[in-house]
Write a protein that binds this DNA or RNA. Structure first.
Lengths: 222, 222
DNA sequence: GTCTATAGTCGGATAGAC
DNA sequence: GTCTATCCGACTATAGAC
């Protein structure tokens, strides 16, 4: 239930926020108690009311914080993607999709993504107003950019919906290693996912993404 | 919060069980209240104590019920898979993986899977003793069979761990359409997933699976 | 800004009527 | 087997001391 070591350097509102992402992700909005969150953040429940206006306010603030953190990490990649989208070079677009998905897989297997991944998956299953914050803030843009690149990478023959479905399926390959973590560990017999395991996962996702796009391009040309 | 129309024909313990899968899936073990489950099943809380020995007992019974239901549906497919595993025919194995994943995708997009899919995803994120029931009962066997077929389909060069990683990635493509449903609807602009949408999703998953396996086989032969 | 104390609600378990 | 009534603990929110 504890947070990272930087807890000491964070202000109390920040500490509450990062703890909230973790605990809400594990227990859900109704399953998490404000007492437990406050205790894990080293303070008392009434501080949640004071700083975030109550449990609901803390939950929405947690969603905003997640969208912000992810946005900071991938905005640079979006700029590169936008350049390649404009260039209309299929080979470059394919390479960029593979690079983006590879980076996405890398983020997904790293422990930092665990807390907000759990939070996001819960919002998928039972969306609340927080889902709008997450989708509008980062998820929608990710799909927009990758699917635009997928269209380019396959020679421009894919319709927008099919490109989006293919994008979701491709990204799903990387996502599964985060949200089905318990199954991944059981199936492989791994105790944890460290450097070696990460490399194996990323290699598989890269190989699959390349194979899918090359095949889709060949199919489009026929 | 209501269940299917067959509620009238089910016995009270069965009604409690199917309602519990739905509500636990949405709210989680701690988020769901026994009063809410009992009310949705048209009875009172004390019936949960009587029939399942309390909230925890009901939760484990829900997990057993899920494993049982899925097991009934896929055991026939396992028999066919086992025959092809023994035959060692790469083309047949490839076709069988595509067929299994296609059927899996079909189940994943249908509304019946929604309730137990949510339940399973929660167990992935925060495993409880119920995870052992789910993994041992059905998930492990699914991965065992598909990965054995993947080894055959790619010419027998894949190691067991890589075959399992590839299997998880392939299955992840189908899974994502279930557990990231909210994002799928937003990204495509669909209001729901009916016959036409299901066909589009299955087409994408089939195409990707075929492309991945064909490429892996070609790579293994080099 | 941060804490303690308290009020009011809702949760799960159980006893007992039918 | 099913329900009602009740107990007790845990929860959120809030008032007020420092």
């Amino acid at each position: 239930m504890n947070m990272d070591d930087s807890a000491q350097t964070q202000s109390l509102p920040e500490r509450l926020l990062s703890t909230a992402i973790d605990v809400f992700g594990r227990k859900g909005l109704e399953g998490a108690s404000t007492r437990a969150i406050a205790a894990a953040a080293g303070t008392t429940m009434s501080m949640i009311t004071y700083h975030h206006g109550g449990k609901e306010g803390l939950y929405l603030a947690a969603a905003r914080s997640i969208a912000e953190q992810i946005g900071e990490r991938i905005t640079p990649a979006f700029a590169a993607a936008a350049r390649i989208e404009a260039a209309d070079d299929a080979a470059a677009a394919l390479a960029q999709v593979v690079a983006l998905v590879d980076e996405f897989a890398n983020v997904m297997v790293r422990p930092e993504s665990a807390a907000w991944a759990r939070f996001i998956v819960r919002e998928q299953m039972e969306p609340t107003p927080a889902f709008d914050i997450l989708y509008g803030g980062v998820m929608g843009r990710l799909i927009d950019h990758i699917s635009a690149l997928v269209v380019r990478a396959t020679g421009g023959r894919l319709g927008p919906t099919e490109a989006r479905l293919r994008t979701i399926a491709i990204v799903g390959q990387a996502l599964v290693f985060r949200f089905a973590r318990a199954t991944v560990l059981r199936a492989t017999g791994w105790a944890s996912i460290d450097a070696e395991e990460t490399a194996a996962i990323r290699g598989v996702v890269r190989a699959h993404t390349t194979a899918i796009l090359a095949d889709a391009r060949a199919g489009a040309e026929t």
